[in-house]
Nucleic acid binder design. Structure first.
Lengths: 190, 190
DNA sequence: CTCGCCAGTCTAGCACCGCTAGCCAATCTG
DNA sequence: CAGATTGGCTAGCGGTGCTAGACTGGCGAG
């Protein structure tokens, strides 16, 4: 019994190592550098071992994405907690969101931009994402007006996501970023 | 002299064929199906011929993206021309934008989502994109208020882009799409 | 008219990708 | 202790973007 327990522990540990390696590699060299061979070398096992833990590369990326979701949720929560005035809270959480995307671009890509084995809108979406969404929704509640809170939150979220993605891949001038963010917040809080 | 002229004509024709093949393939089977081998087979030449026209696959995709920009600009212009009331114009152009992204997802991806050899924010950005941007800007002018028009337009554009991308890769529920769009337009026109 | 050159195209192949079949050793079971 | 099972490995499949080097057909020079 105890041997089996040790085995399972080691196995879980190795699974964590895979996800951590994928994340570290992605954050330091970008997702292009994350290949199954490279990952296998990193954890000092052979390639097929990866497939005994995950269905494929997409599933590994999905695991990283879920981890990232958790951190995003935590940072949004912190931003919300730090605010006093409702309007300030919206501005603060928006800044926190954008800051996360800029500080952890690889993580952000895994969550939102890359083709990953995750169905977000369905029931098996990660609870971490729901938490992040809830933080945003609670912050927006005072300014939603007559609009349905969930739909309103999705729309604001889209605005943030659009700003982040368009700017990061060079579709928007990097200057004026702050002003764009201010406009978005302003239009959604008045 | 005339022989050379014919050669150049044939060469230009073949270049057009490459871009058209890439676009058709992408629109009918998705960008994953667009490989250099497949493309070569489609134009009935060997693979290396592609590289005598374009620096690489990314450059071919960029050419498709520029073509798509032109069509997007045209559709936005049509939407703007059809409107009477300023508020209606914003709603109309927003609907046209989203409709374009839904009807031509491959084209939209080439323009905005895929890693492509195009620097948008710099001076060698395609004029087609500038045209599309200008249509949006002119439509928004009456509702920009005190905000800088260009920055304001970028922000609204980001909102549209966020809605489109998040919905298309399953990050938003497909229902309520109309309502989200309405909220965005409403918040930017009042 | 012939010969050498050169542009243009092709075949073949490089290094890499995600993924898997099948072998082999270590471990558990009767 | 013999046999079954588990779990990792090596090797390889079919694909990718891209390129070196061979070949060929039409050109200009002698």
């Amino acid at each position: 019994m105890s041997i089996q327990a040790r085995r399972e522990r080691e196995r879980a540990e190795r699974e964590r190592a895979i996800v951590a390696a994928a994340r570290d590699l992605a954050e330091s060299e970008g997702w292009d550098a994350v290949t199954t061979r490279r990952l296998a070398a990193e954890i000092e096992y052979s390639q097929p071992v990866l497939y005994s833990h995950f269905k494929g590369k997409g599933a590994i990326m999905a695991a990283v994405a879920v981890e990232g979701c958790g951190e995003l949720a935590a940072e949004l929560a912190a931003a919300r907690a730090a605010a006093t005035d409702p309007r300030q809270a919206v501005a603060g959480i928006a800044r926190a969101y954008v800051a996360f995307a800029e500080r952890r671009p690889a993580l952000y890509d895994a969550i939102f931009n890359l083709p990953v084995d995750l169905s977000f809108a369905s029931k098996d979406a990660p609870v971490e994402l729901a938490r992040a969404f809830a933080e945003l929704a609670e912050t927006l509640r005072p300014v939603a007006g007559g609009d349905d809170l969930e739909t309103f939150t999705e729309t604001f979220w889209s605005g943030l996501h659009g700003l982040v993605t368009l700017m990061r891949n060079g579709r928007l001038r990097h200057t004026d970023h702050e002003r764009r963010l201010a406009i978005l917040v302003d239009r959604f809080t008045r």
